[in-house]
């Protein structure tokens, strides 16, 4: 009985202390590339919100689809209007956990594995990808690279532009997070 009470007390003490290890950014960068012999498409969103909780080993991302900038204005319009339908599904989210040890005391690059659920175009899909976390002097820098398939998110590509859009979209993530106080 006493042990239980002690345990609860211990948890109550530890959890608030542990949750202080949260790192956040509002200027994370996510780029995606579609390479085909017909056309190369590249878009970048540099207003990605991301948070990493080192003690819980969780992370989350949130971004507005309209913030993806393309080289061609018309491509951007079609991306929002016809493909991701950003009027109906304005945000894309990721919520997940990671495995791998990250020691804040040792500034270096750590290889981790991230798994979780991406929400895009209103469709949820779980993914798992290798990633890196670097402990730097003023925070945490994370990178990841993975492929997504448009059809997994109910994004249909009409036959007439089929040859211009890659089957697999190469997604690259780079975030530099600062500790939250």
């Amino acid at each position: 009985m006493k042990k239980f009470i002690l345990y609860i007390g211990f948890c109550a003490l530890v959890i608030p202390a542990a949750s202080a290890q949260v790192y956040i950014t509002r200027t994370g960068v996510i780029q995606f590339f579609s390479k085909t012999p017909m056309e190369d498409i590249k878009a970048e969103n540099n207003q990605v919100y991301a948070a990493i909780d080192l003690s819980q080993k969780t992370m989350a991302f949130s971004m507005l689809m309209k913030s993806f900038l393309f080289r061609k204005e018309l491509m951007q319009e079609h991306f929002n209007e016809n493909y991701v339908e950003s009027d109906r599904y304005p945000k894309s989210l990721f919520k997940g956990t990671f495995t791998g040890d990250v020691d804040l005391q040792k500034p270096q690059i750590y290889n981790i594995r991230v798994q979780g659920v991406i929400t895009l175009h209103g469709v949820e899909k779980s993914i798992s990808t290798p990633a890196t976390l670097e402990v730097t002097a003023d925070g945490l820098t994370g990178t990841a690279r993975f492929n997504l398939l448009p059809q997994d998110f109910d994004i249909t590509i009409p036959g007439i532009v089929r040859d211009k859009i890659a089957r697999q979209i190469d997604v690259q993530v780079k975030i530099s997070c600062k500790p939250v106080n």
Partner: peptide, 29 residues
């Protein structure tokens, strides 16, 4: 409860800061 709140609080935190920063979007097309 703690586990749930820990799990989603990260996303909620992002969503909250996003709401306050969000600006009016231009209507296109």
């Amino acid at each position: 409860k703690i586990a749930i709140s820990q799990d989603s609080s990260l996303l909620h935190m992002l969503e909250d800061s996003m709401m306050t920063d969000k600006q009016g979007g231009r209507v296109t097309a």
